[in-house]
Amino acid sequence: MARFSTSQTAAAVPLNGRIKKRRTKSIPLIQQVAGADRFWVMLFLLPFIILYTSFTLWPLLATIIYSFFDWDGNGPLELFIRLENYITIARDPLFWLSFRNTLVFALINTAIKLPLSLMAAILLTRKWLWGQRLFRTVYFAPLVIPVAMAGLIFQLLLHPANGAINDLLTSTGLVQRPIDFLGNERLALLSLVIVSVWQIFGQYMIYWMAALQNVPEALYEAAELDGAGEWKKLVHITLPIIRPVAIIILFLAFVNALKVFGLVVTMTGGGPGFQTYVVPYFIYTQALVDFPFRYGYASAAAVLFGVTILLAVTVQGYFVRRAEADRKDYGV
């Protein structure tokens, strides 16, 4: 049985939500529901649909509703103010700064974590590698540390007065004066990016490992017979084959990075100044920290941000379709 799971694309493909469009000519993968199966299909869908509607769709809808009210999150929704929250948001410089910071964060974060985790995934799936299990666990480990603890650790490690990293930099003579990673307005966001890469790395490593299954081992063997080295195998076999899946992982990585929150709270609190304010943190402070709460306003910020991202994703959808076309060409 295991034969099938290993010979197929397994976990890699599912990262793609638009898979339904793809139909292989020879075997119709999807069958039309008929007869008694109707009942089963309904039954199988029900648990997910119920929970999904109640805990994902409804909150989303509620957020949109709240965004039209002047509401502190408490008591009845009474003060309908139409688009006023949106108008205020559009003129709120802190929101736009947060917006910009979020995008910068997500872009750099994605640009760093994906190649690195891909390299790790490739290395850690080489059959010749010693100690695979151990290394995988090691690189996965940061993912399990609660974010409040991770924030504290890095506050201490990055500290300019006695932090380990500055100790190392100054004692090796790399820098003259300690660097204030979290206090410097140009470095703070970047420091957050690095720490978040460290934290989330394991997750993308696993995604990449899934993607790498698309590469039939036979191709490698053939290449080896031709005397290709590891680098050539990477460039000419691995990368082209995983490209379609890579695009989907890229989306996921970028969108998840846009949700950055916990590390900001624990490491910088948005500072220095407002240099590390990101949209989720902005929403959080508006809705729940600064009294009186502005829940309606925060909801408007969330909706505005969400819609913008969705638009971006729709544009990206074009690339998804191209990726699928590519994949078909490779026949995997």
């Binding site: 299909v41 649909i49 509620a62 989720p280 969330a302 969705l310």
Partner: peptide, 28 residues
């Protein structure tokens, strides 16, 4: 494995919500 009415809609929705950051959904 199956094709049924509303399948595409469901897949589309599920995919879309994956990309929408849901802020402070705890209240609803």
């Amino acid at each position: 494995r199956y094709r049924f009415p509303g399948r595409n809609l469901l897949l589309g929705l599920v995919t879309a919500t994956l990309f929408i950051p849901i802020a402070s959904i705890i209240l609803p």
